[in-house]
Nucleic acid binder design. Structure first.
Length: 295
DNA sequence: CACTTGACCTGTCCGC
DNA sequence: TGCGGACAGGTCAAGT
């Protein structure tokens, strides 16, 4: 699932690959995946890329921006040449071979064509993701962005994080970490990793957790995401970067998708349960369940 | 307002 | 082998 490190990895790739290129045409294969008028992008040149939380932005000249969200299965994959017999980058046996092949494929929702024949494909198996073409000065007003909490890897997010999470004392800390209005960019993988780091049971109510522990959880999320950035993100099923490559972070995860395997701190088996509508991984020994407060 | 649940989708996996 | 259903999880709408 593309979370902050995955979206940032895609952004860095796109920054190298498409900045300076002029869009000739956008072909939309799945109308619900694109908001706005695709024809309005033609003739505009990419001036830069940005990211806020899990939201990707590709700025164009003329005051336009392509804003996108990959949700769970979105991919932004750049190909230098038009599809053809030689377009496949990966040889037989390459680890990417089974993940992504010639484009467009069945999951391709739109194609952004550039001067010179290169193409940026937006693939999204489950059609939850979207791209929108809107005036740059209206990007910040998108509700998701307008309400979004602090960036966990920029400056000191703790004071703002603390202010926001303390408004939600009755919710579970797992749900709070997934709430983009409390802190930006954390999804299911890094929420579980953060709580393992801080030794907090995911079902614990925010109101029952000290500031010191909450700060540790935020720090744990940041630590996991920084490592993931170095490793090109997490590839669970679909995620690839702008050049179609997998990320390697899950090989180093402490709890995510490790149910039944030994905790790296205490060797007890990792548990998996369902919380806040999500699969939730934790060490039942290191992360003690909350005590009932009354009765 | 705070909080929870279901909807949105489709590919994969599991049990029968 | 085929089939039904659970599951995967980011965000929003609708519910309590």
């Amino acid at each position: 699932m593309p979370e902050l490190p995955e979206v940032e990895t895609v952004r860095r790739g796109l920054d190298q690959l498409v900045v300076g290129r002029e869009i000739t045409k956008i072909d939309v294969f799945e109308p619900k995946s694109f908001l706005g008028q695709p024809a309005e992008a033609s003739g505009h040149r990419v001036t830069g890329t940005r990211r806020r939380g899990k939201v990707l932005m590709i700025d164009l000249d003329g005051g336009l921006t392509l804003v996108g969200h990959l949700k769970m299965t979105g991919q932004m994959v750049y190909r230098e040449t038009a599809p053809g017999p030689d377009a496949t980058r990966w040889g037989a046996g390459h680890p990417n071979d089974s993940l992504i092949g010639e484009l467009p494929d069945a999951s391709s929702r739109l194609a952004i064509h550039f001067e010179g024949g290169s193409t940026l494909y937006f693939n999204d198996q489950r059609k939850f993701g979207w791209l929108a073409l809107i005036p740059t000065d209206q990007v910040a007003a998108i509700p998701l962005l307008a309400k979004m909490g602090p960036e966990p890897l920029e400056g000191d997010p703790w004071p703002e994080f603390r202010r926001r999470i303390r408004r939600h004392q009755a919710t579970s800390v797992k749900a709070a970490l997934l709430n983009q209005e409390i802190v930006a960019g954390i999804g299911n993988i890094y929420a579980d990793e953060a709580l393992w780091h801080a030794r907090i049971h995911p079902a614990t109510r925010v109101g029952d957790i000290s500031d010191r522990k909450l700060k540790s959880a935020l720090g744990g999320a940041a630590q996991a995401m920084r490592l993931s950035l170095e490793l090109g993100g997490s590839t669970d099923r679909n995620y690839v970067d702008a050049e179609g490559r997998r990320g390697a972070y899950l090989d180093f995860a402490n709890v995510f998708r490790r149910e039944g395997q030994p905790c790296k701190r205490c060797q007890r088996p990792i548990s998996k349960t369902r919380l806040a509508g999500r699969g939730t991984h934790f060490c039942p020994a290191c992360q003690r369940p909350p005590r009932p407060r009354t009765v």
